[in-house]
Structures are given as C-alpha cells and as structure tokens.
C-alpha cells in the first residue's frame, strides 16, 4: 500500500498540471482566506469583527468542495492512458492508494487554510462581545470538516470510476453539488422539516452547520461521524465497482 501511495505521489508531482494546481490551489486558498472581508463585501456580507466570520464560513467550507475537482485526474489517469495493465499486482490496492493520495494532498490545502485563517482572524478587530476561544473553536470546526471532505473525495472517486471521463465526472459532480442547494431552497418553502434532515445527514449539510463556528461538542461529533460513515461507504462502493469492472 505504501508503495502504491508513493508511486501515486511521485506520478502526481511529476505532472506539470498537478504541480500547477497544487501551488495555484494553495495560493488561491491563501489569497481567498486572507481577503475574506473584501470578498465578502462584494458578495453582500459585512465582515468587520472576528465573530462576523461565522456569517461567511458556511460558504467558504462548501465552496472549497469545488476545489476538490483538481483531484479528478488522479482517479481518471488509468482510464485515460490505459495504464491499468501495468499494475496487475496491485489492482486491489489501486483504489485505496489513489484515495489516500488525494487525501494527503487535501491535507496540504487544509494546512494552508488553517494558517491563512489564523492570520485573517488576528487581522480583524476583536468583537465587542467576547471572542475568547473563538479561534480554537473555529479551528476545531475546520478539523471536523476534514472527514466530510474525505467523503466528498470518495464521492469524486466513485463518479470518476463510473464515468471514466474527467469532464463528464466534473459536470455530474459540479451540477449535483450546485443543485443540492437549489433543491434545499425550493423545498424550504414547502417542507422546512425535511430541509433540517438534509442539513444534518449529508456532508454538504455538515459544512453548512460547521461554518457556524460555535457548534457544540455533540454537533461536531455528529458531523465527524457523518463524514466518516459517508467516506467509508462511498469508498467501499468505489472499490467494489472498480473491482467489478476490472474483473469484467
């Protein structure tokens, strides 16, 4: 397994596309987070104090899911270049190896985000009411999103294995992701109770909840559990589907 991950990391870092995306993505995250108050201003939010950050964080957490699309090529390269035949000994490990590689790269983005967020936090004026412990709570909320991002990567892997084509997978992922909000908004008028369930039982809903930044320990635990369950289920589905296709 370690060798598969090593080879995937080596392969990815050799790719110009991936290097540009990794550096560009990190820079994009750093700039976007460092200039959150200015960007929020354009979007119609006013971020002046530290406690105001909770207004924009749900959108930052959910918006970051789009950036995960740069991991599509990690999953589709075997189909694109027909290189599956080169690794007969490690076919069963390929899916997990690729998944863990994407997760490792995702953690680089997470580290950049946390560093930029801390700088932004201290750049903002302290809140008139207490903001004691807000930074720690914010970082804990962010750490709790990682299992949910892992679930999103597992979803990306499942879509790419099923679609075999980067753009088709990207359209399905982007559209279903964007439409989830529309569905929620349209359904909000008709059945708000169902919307509450949607918010609590999907990784995207959890991003929205965790963006509140002042969530209780119970809610954070629930979010982590939801993320882990989705990640395991979706990854197992990807593995099974991939093996079925290989065997076929």
């Amino acid at each position: 397994m370690v060798n598969v991950i090593r080879s995937e990391i080596f392969k990815s870092l050799r790719s110009t596309y991936f290097r540009i995306c990794l550096v560009g993505g990190s820079l994009f995250i750093a700039i976007a987070v460092l200039f959150i108050p200015q960007i929020a201003n354009v979007a119609g939010f006013s971020i002046e104090t530290r406690s105001d950050l909770s207004k924009i964080m749900p959108f930052v957490f959910t918006g970051a899911c789009v950036a995960l699309m740069i991991f599509f090529p990690i999953f589709t390269d075997i189909f694109k270049y027909n290189t599956l035949k080169n690794e007969p000994g490690s076919i069963s490990l390929i899916t997990t190896g690729k998944y863990l590689t994407a997760l490792i790269f995702c953690l680089i983005f997470a580290a950049v985000f946390m560093a930029s967020f801390t700088v932004t936090f201290f750049r903002l004026a302290p809140s008139p009411d207490t903001d004691k412990g807000l930074l720690a709570e914010s970082l804990i909320s962010f750490l709790a999103t990682i299992p949910n991002y892992a679930a999103m990567i597992a979803l990306i892997q499942l879509i790419t294995i099923a679609a075999k084509n980067e753009i088709i997978a990207a359209i399905i992922y982007y559209y279903s992701f964007a439409q989830l909000f529309t569905v929620k908004l349209i359904m909000a008028g008709a059945m708000p109770e169902d919307m509450v369930i949607l918010r609590h039982l999907t990784p995207i809903g959890e991003f929205y909840n965790l963006g509140d930044l002042r969530f209780s320990a119970v809610h954070i635990t629930l979010s982590v559990v939801v993320g882990i369950v989705y990640a395991i289920v979706l990854h197992t589905m990807s593995r099974k589907y991939f093996m079925k296709r290989v065997m076929a």
Binding site: Y17, I20, C21, M69, F72, P73, I167, A170, Y174
Partner: peptide, 18 residues
C-alpha cells in the same frame, strides 16, 4: 487540460463578473 479549462470557465470566468 480538461479540468483546468472547466474550472477556469465555470469558477473563474463565470463568477468574476461582479
């Protein structure tokens, strides 16, 4: 690159108007 073009069009170009 397919994904880079997709991201550039839908995320950067489509949303940078405002």
């Amino acid at each position: 690159n397919e994904i880079v073009s997709f991201l550039l069009f839908f995320i950067v170009l489509s949303n940078s108007g405002a």
